[in-house]
């Protein structure tokens, strides 16, 4: 018998590190040393702040490089770093560093391009506060009811934070479906690319998948 699924939620508070960069070498220097929570903030907060819109490329580094520093090529390469393919923040950070280093090798004069202080890149840390909601499920039907009731922050926690920041291996929903013996459902949900949907679309997609599964099993 699988353990009941408890919906948690996680809310974030922003904390500035006081570190700022006005050039690529500075950006690179701080990228190497800032805590993982800073990398997490700059690659994920977009998803939440603009969740009602079509998702934006979810990283601030790309935005700053292309729109502020004005290097569209590097910006594009940073945009296309596929966050979902990295198992940890360490690996994600490494890819950002490698991409910028490689570009600087190709275009060394870019080292000397800098922006005005008021356009600096500010390194911000995400402080996550995680707490349980009263919603709990022992089967798929209850799970669907819980999924309707929670905020998108709860989805965010079980999908992004669990996988990348807490390194649970997959998203929490898929892990639980697996423990129920719902292998196919677990895999379908794990294959969803959460970075190309809004959180609300994601919720609806998962609800539809559960709905189909319940129908197959003759539970409606």
């Amino acid at each position: 018998m699988a353990e009941p699924f408890r919906f948690y939620t996680r809310l974030t508070l922003k904390e500035t590190t006081g570190l700022r960069a006005i050039s690529l070498p500075q950006l690179l220097k701080f990228l190497r040393t800032v805590p993982g929570s800073v990398i997490y903030h700059h690659t994920h907060h977009y998803l939440q702040q603009h969740q009602y819109l079509t998702p934006e490329p979810p990283n601030d580094f790309a935005y700053w490089v292309s729109d502020i520093l004005g290097d569209k090529e590097l910006g594009e390469r940073l945009v296309s770093i596929d966050t979902i393919s990295f198992p940890s923040l360490r690996a994600l950070r490494e890819r950002f560093i490698e991409t910028i280093e490689e570009h600087l090798r190709k275009r060394p004069r870019l080292r000397f391009r800098w922006v005005e202080p008021e356009q600096a890149f500010h390194f911000i840390r995400a402080v996550s506060v995680i707490f349980p909601t009263p919603y709990e499920a022992v089967n798929l039907a209850e799970f669907a009811r819980g999924l309707v009731a929670v905020t998108i922050d709860s989805l965010y926690y079980h999908i992004f934070e669990a996988r990348l920041r807490l390194e649970h291996g997959s998203n929490d929903f898929s892990l639980w479906f697996k423990s129920l013996g719902e292998e196919a459902l677990a895999q379908t949900v794990a294959r969803l690319d959460p970075y190309t949907h809004t959180m609300e679309e994601l919720r609806q997609s998962i609800l539809r998948m559960i709905g189909r599964r319940l129908k197959e099993a003759g539970i409606s």
């Binding site: 929570s37 995400a126 996550s128 995680i130 707490f131």
Partner: peptide
């Protein structure tokens, strides 16, 4: 809680 990920 001074840590980055706080479980309340």
């Amino acid at each position: 809680h001074p840590e980055d990920v706080i479980l309340l």
